[in-house]
Design a protein around this nucleic acid. Structure first.
Lengths: 194, 194
DNA sequence: AAAGGAGATTAATCTAGATTAAGACACTAC
DNA sequence: GTAGTGTCTTAATCTAGATTAATCTCCTTT
């Protein structure tokens, strides 16, 4: 497993010369995780921004009653972690756990600060991808406020077909903010309708 | 009304020299709006990023049944607009409306693109503020998934006391994703408890 | 001071979705 | 084979919050 997907991803947004690419890669740590392992644990400081080279992860918050609430999934070419914790280097409110064996490209906080100084173009890169993430997050809030569960599920399947196929239903239910039983009911209604 | 609050805000994150500040300000358009006026309308392209110099605004989505869903409020020192529309220059899915007379500092898309090139430090500035906005947005999703309405209301009052005092209750209800009647019930229960 | 009108409250009824609990399929693993 | 574990489904009951509708403030405006 190499870092090519990460470089391809970078090149979609900015042009780095050979030297800059080499510098960037020198700060990237490749790390393998087994299915079930935690990349971030609630209460610990999130040490890395993680780019997914292979595998599938979920990030979720565990509430005081012990219920999981899935905030997002991540697959190849996505970033994951607890950004709030990473930025301020304070305890995370989220867990990030591997649902398959994973290979991640990791950037530490101090290395990233250094990279921002030595390769200012990276500011642009991260500005652009975080803007996209923010827009998606706002759109999800609107959907949660304005759509019933059934429509949110249909929208999720359309927007993330690659993820829908890959994760168990009860996690999709958690992502949508409903119980697995209710998602099962919705699915049986959808099948009945056609 | 001048642009001092905007410069103060910039200086919290980056240092600009005299020339850069002047260039930046040359692209900023000051504009006054009356209470009730729309800064962005659903279906139109969002032309500006708007920094609030004075006043109070709401951004909301109107669903097909004609119900408003408030996505966020904005007061002095906040940014507002429909970022998704602004970035891609496509029709907005949100409305932004003044709830008081407002003065906004506006940056157009093309001017901002030019500013990014001529003042690369602005990439850093917008990266940092959008990161903060993203973290807040993610946190709101977690709260919407994991907290009952009552707790969400208490949290809102604690987090945004300046806004809580300033907007009508039925809009706070919309922001929280509940009806005004139910918010009224929650409030009367809270009063009863002390 | 009367007449609107916008917002807030209260209460009765209703419903989307939760909870609980019981099976139904898978799969490994032994 | 069967015991075990993780996932999905079905169905009965329950509840947080929606809907509807009436009443109650306050503000404006005249």
């Amino acid at each position: 497993m190499d870092t090519k997907p990460l470089l391809d991803y970078l090149r979609r947004y900015i042009d780095l010369d050979q030297e800059e690419e080499a510098l960037f890669l020198s700060k990237v740590k490749l790390r393998k995780y087994l299915k079930g392992q935690y990349v971030v644990q609630q209460g610990d400081v999130c040490l890395y921004e993680n780019f997914v080279l292979s595998g599938c992860l979920k990030s979720f918050h565990m509430d005081p009653e012990g219920h999981e609430h899935i905030v997002m999934f991540a697959i190849e070419d996505w970033w994951t972690g607890d950004l709030g914790s990473f930025l301020s280097q304070t305890p995370a409110s989220l867990n990030v756990q591997c649902m398959e064996n994973c290979v991640l490209a990791q950037l530490s906080h101090s290395d990233l600060q250094e990279l921002y100084i030595r390769i200012p173009k990276l500011e642009r890169f991260f500005r652009i991808i975080i803007q996209k993430a923010y827009v998606a997050s706002q759109q999800r809030i609107v959907h949660n406020l304005s759509m019933p569960a059934r429509d949110r599920y249909l929208h999720f399947r359309k927007q993330y077909p690659r993820i829908d196929q890959r994760v168990p239903q009860y996690m999709i239910a958690s992502y949508l903010g409903i119980t697995p039983e209710f998602l099962s009911k919705i699915r049986s209604q959808l099948i009945y309708e056609q």
